[in-house]
């Protein structure tokens, strides 16, 4: 032990397979911890994970059905609300879960295999699982009652759902990392998420809008995702307008920025 010279000790890095296994284990541990913390073991416990979004979706479906909201297509309002609101829950709750997620969890970083990215990803996976199960169960329930049909192209629904989830995760990671830097992120995200809701494609079909409005609304990436989901679900009688390339490009760039941001904040983090 001495103040020795700077002879760098090069060690073969951990094999990628091992590292992946470790990361998977860590994320799973964080996920279980998060789920247990959030829902506890009381009453229905874990089930809240998807019961909560289900209640939201059912509520909105009921509201829209009662008020007979104009949505500009021949799709039954229940099916319309189901696809629309589930999609909103998917991408909008993710940033909410990640913003300011780090501060209360900083001591976890004492366990060296727990990285900032893992803390975010565990929450995102939980959110994804909840929104997906809610959508799945409600779709099955509504189909049994006869309010909706089964999706015409299940693969397309899944594809759209995953793209939307990717977009939501990238956005969440980016905002989550950014929120370490500035509390403005949290302050601005709340109004922003409410303002984007009516524009997000949940409450209308793009086809029902006039041309100028379509061009404007299609600037929002999530609209493309919702349209893909709807086209897959309702098939030909919902004329969808979307550009897969656009939402993928946006999600990709967001992912890139998010990962950069996570790397950038790492040195600034002070564990109490």
């Amino acid at each position: 032990m001495s103040a020795a010279g700077a002879t760098e000790l090069r060690r073969a890095p951990v094999p990628l397979g091992t590292a992946i296994a470790v990361q998977r284990r860590v994320i799973f541990a964080l996920l279980m911890r998060e789920a247990l913390t959030r829902y506890g073991r009381h009453n229905i416990g874990f089930l809240w994970l998807f019961v909560e979004p289900m209640i939201f979706t059912i509520g909105v479906t009921a509201l829209w059905s009662i008020t007979k909201t104009v949505h500009g297509s021949t799709i039954p309002i229940t099916a319309f609300a189901l696809t629309g609101y589930s999609s909103v829950l998917l991408w909008r709750n993710m940033p909410g879960r990640c913003i300011n997620a780090l501060m209360p969890n900083l001591p976890l970083l004492y366990h060296r295999n727990v990285r900032i990215f893992d803390i975010f990803v565990a929450r995102l996976l939980l959110e994804f699982a909840g929104a997906t199960m809610s959508f799945l169960l409600l779709a099955m329930l509504f189909t049994l009652i006869g309010w909706t049909q089964l999706p015409e192209n299940l693969l397309e629904v899944i594809g759209g759902w995953f793209i939307l989830a990717w977009f939501g995760m990238a956005l969440a990671l980016f905002l989550g990392a950014l929120s370490v830097r500035s509390e403005l992120v949290e302050k601005l995200w709340h109004p922003l998420s409410y303002l984007t809701f009516p524009l997000s494609g949940a409450a209308f079909m793009v086809d029902a809008l006039p041309r100028q409005a379509q061009d404007f609304v299609l600037l929002l990436p999530m609209v493309h995702g919702v349209e893909i989901v709807r086209e897959g679900y309702f098939g030909s009688y919902a004329r969808a307008h979307y550009d897969v390339g656009y939402i993928v490009a946006v999600a990709l760039v967001l992912t890139f920025l998010a990962l950069l941001q996570i790397r950038a904040v790492a040195p600034d983090i002070i564990v109490e």
């Binding site: 860590v26 799973f28 279980m32």
Partner: peptide, 8 residues
Amino acid sequence: RFISRIYN
């Protein structure tokens, strides 16, 4: 349990 999971 959490620690056990983290450290396998």
